[in-house]
Nucleic acid binder design. Structure first.
Lengths: 123, 123, 123, 123
DNA sequence: GTGGTCTAGACCACG
DNA sequence: GTGGTCTAGACCACC
């Protein structure tokens, strides 16, 4: 389900958050799907359940999961996170674009790259 | 010369690296200019000289500075970093664009934003 | 009769208490009406009968229900809870108002909001 | 600085968050004041430093604190949280008012109570 | 069984 | 010394 990179200097729970967020946004995990329990996912990744707990808590705060005590955690419906996600991504893209501009990259180059990226297929 | 933001979550030496990198890339610091000593810049920013040392070391690795033992650190010629800089920025921009695409932003939106950013003046 | 929200963070029995309390206070369930058995309501809500039992017990303590051994639970007469309910609600409203005041909201704002709420129709 | 209520069923870290939030909103802790370290406050409250850590993390996410790694946590400037706070308080007040209305309390009663509360002095 | 909380003790990067 | 992360093991409420 997830592959951890122990060489990565970021905390483990952050990696877990990122990977799961990706799986949810990409639609690989459908709405209301039951997530593995903190204990089982902890076993699978050979990581303490508390670490998974932390990741789940963050995902819940971000609106990607909802939790039913005693039953488990579930994938939240898209409406919960879609807007915020787009907004945040656009902001990050802006920043990257400004930095690219400052580094001397021209509008032409970026426009053609943009076209290339969107032509790559739906993936 | 530099203004630190203590509320930034990143380590201070990283902020120093970023600011100095910006000053060099933008041309505010010309080639072969002598940089202030780690001690004096440390005094100015009210920061431990070790922290400045660390920043200078990183800048040297990235090709923005070169050091002459016993004389100090100097701004490296543009040729040392220009290509690498562009390449790295383009890579980061690619990543941000792909993420934006995955989040559901359309090519039209990004194209118009791109145009807007490049129309903001040369700054 | 009742719709549960599994994404609510509160325990289910508490939700059941709240919903039934609302039905009784609003008059939708008249005095001395027989409540469904814990087993049948448990079936209907697809919930463990223990959970319903717990809700009924709480409602009885609050004075909204009374139980006759071997016959079932019944809606208590209004006199049993009317005063306590008003008093408790007023107390909660006081708390919320004080907190709003502390947060910097003015009397004018709250007065106009109050008027707006009471103008919304009897519902 | 803080008094914990062990009879309270809410988690300890939540109590700490609430108390500190109150101290900050009320102005008892001024902007940029240094907060006690997680270890020292943990000692003082006879609680594990991790628990305090959790409280500080939440306060930071809410915008009440900012943290400088290796230096400590500090009270954030009012501008960081003022607007969100007001909005949230108003929403809670709305809910309480609607419930009070449903319980049979009249607009007159609430209006007079409102006036009384705002007449209590600045406290 | 599930998530939620808490403890005790450890290691790390930063300054 | 400070915050940040992680582990191991424990207890609780809920279902």
């Amino acid at each position: 389900m997830i592959l951890l990179d122990y060489r990565d200097k970021r905390p483990i729970y952050e990696q877990v958050v990122e990977k799961l967020e990706h799986l949810i946004v990409s639609g690989a995990l459908e709405e209301n799907t039951k997530m593995p329990s903190v204990r089982s996912l902890g076993m699978e990744l050979v990581v303490n359940p508390n670490t998974i707990q932390r990741a789940y808590t963050q995902l819940e705060q971000k609106g990607y999961l909802y939790t039913v005590a005693g039953r488990g955690s579930f994938v939240a419906p898209e409406s919960e996170w879609r807007d915020g996600k787009k907004e945040k991504m656009l902001e990050e893209w802006h920043l990257a674009t400004r930095k690219a501009k400052e580094a001397g990259l021209t509008e032409d180059v970026l426009t053609s790259e943009l076209h290339r990226i969107y032509g790559e297929g739906t993936k």
